[in-house]
């Protein structure tokens, strides 16, 4: 490797990752029963997804976040008393206010003398969270950040919309980002991108203050593909999102290589946001890396939004495929439209 430029200042690394899933399963057979023209083998062939987990009616993203943190402190209890900042990335908060991260601090029994804030981002959220955590550490503002990603898109999805119901699953991940024992670990550099011009391509139109929920926003409509939704539910323009992804992800991949002054051969792995098999196949062809260096994890969990990247990292770390000295590119993209890439050293 010729060069790598992590964030200047106090260095940081990822020290531990744990994940959590709700127990309810939505299988392809369940979907095929609801949508007779959408057979289970076709769902698997197109999306690569067999099952997705769905939060219970009374189970929120904050509950999943607490579950991921409990799993993290169970496997790595030494970090519990060192956390001095919580960053919670979610788009399904318990309340409009207060901040979910504040509730999480209390739920976890963490001391009151720590910082906590929410980040409202979707599929780019983990990489953004890494950048904020690394920035807090670099500036000496925090030493050990608990970065939590948690979402329950299922609560936004209309039961009659097979396009998004097939893809998204609920889940959460908790990651320790710390300045302690950094050794070979590193975080950065980063590349970011934003195009709010595509905000309406992946959106829950109603429920905020621009368009409060009402009887009118609850009116259901069927689109030309037979999907039913209302303005209260999640809408995704799959074509527009794919077009944006095929344009920006390879560009960001190259920009990050250039910024870090490394080549693809210097990377142990490239972990993309796990949108679905179809999109990852298309991106892998454009990026031109082999299967071994583009690990995946969606078959049994679906697209868990901001948690997909830590789900893959957890899998690869557990399998011993990211030994000390590994260099990994992480790249998230989606709702916003928003995208972000980073290099992470283990």
């Amino acid at each position: 490797m010729t060069a790598l430029h992590p964030s200047p200042g106090v260095p940081a690394r990822i020290a531990a990752i744990a994940t959590h899933l709700p127990s309810r399963v939505l299988s392809n057979a369940d979907l095929a029963a609801a949508f007779p023209d959408w057979p289970a083998d076709k769902i698997l062939d197109k999306t690569g997804i067999r099952e997705r987990r769905i939060a219970a009616d009374d189970e929120t993203a904050l509950d999943l976040a607490a579950g991921a943190c409990a799993a993290l402190f169970d496997q790595a209890p030494q970090w519990r008393n060192r956390v001095d900042f919580i960053i919670l990335c979610t788009q399904a908060p318990d309340h409009v206010l207060p901040t979910s991260a504040c509730i999480l601090q209390h739920r976890l029994g963490l001391p009151t003398g720590i910082g906590a804030l929410d980040v409202n981002l979707g599929c780019s959220g983990f990489v953004y969270g890494l950048s904020l955590a690394a920035g807090l550490i670099a500036a000496g503002t925090a030493a050990t950040v608990l970065l939590v990603t948690a979402d329950t898109y299922s609560k936004y999805i209309h039961r009659g919309d097979k396009s998004v119901r097939t893809l998204f699953g609920d889940g959460a991940a908790a990651t320790i980002v710390t300045s302690e024992d950094v050794a070979g670990g590193s975080i950065g550099p980063f590349v970011f991108g934003t195009d709010g011009g595509g905000a309406d391509r992946l959106i829950v139109p109603a429920g905020g203050f621009r368009l409060p929920r009402s009887a009118a926003t609850a009116v259901e409509r069927e689109d030309r593909s037979g999907n039913v939704r209302s303005d209260d539910s999640l809408f995704m323009d799959g074509g527009a999102v794919l077009t944006f992804t095929l344009r920006e992800v390879p560009r960001t991949f190259r920009a990050l290589l250039e910024k870090a002054e490394v080549t693809p051969d210097d990377l142990t792995a490239v972990v993309l946001h796990q949108a679905n098999k179809f999109m990852l196949d298309a991106l892998q062809k454009k990026i031109g890396l082999d299967d071994a260096r583009m690990p995946r994890r969606y078959e049994m969990i679906g697209n868990t939004v901001s948690s997909t990247i830590p789900f893959v990292l957890e899998q690869e770390l557990a399998a011993g495929r990211l030994p000390v000295g590994s260099r990994v590119m992480v790249l998230g993209f989606g709702v916003g439209l928003s995208w972000a890439g980073a290099l992470v050293g283990f």
């Binding site: 197109k46 030309r224 037979g226 799959g238 074509g239 077009t243 095929l246 179809f278 298309a282």
Partner: peptide, 27 residues
């Protein structure tokens, strides 16, 4: 010619021609 077919066609044209076609025009 549903949304999945249109998305698949965008990926096909991108792969063969490295060109981006409008989803709305495809529809």
């Amino acid at each position: 010619w549903d949304s999945l077919a249109i998305v698949s066609t965008i990926a096909l044209i991108d792969e063969i021609h490295d060109r981006s076609v409008s989803p709305d025009a495809l529809a």
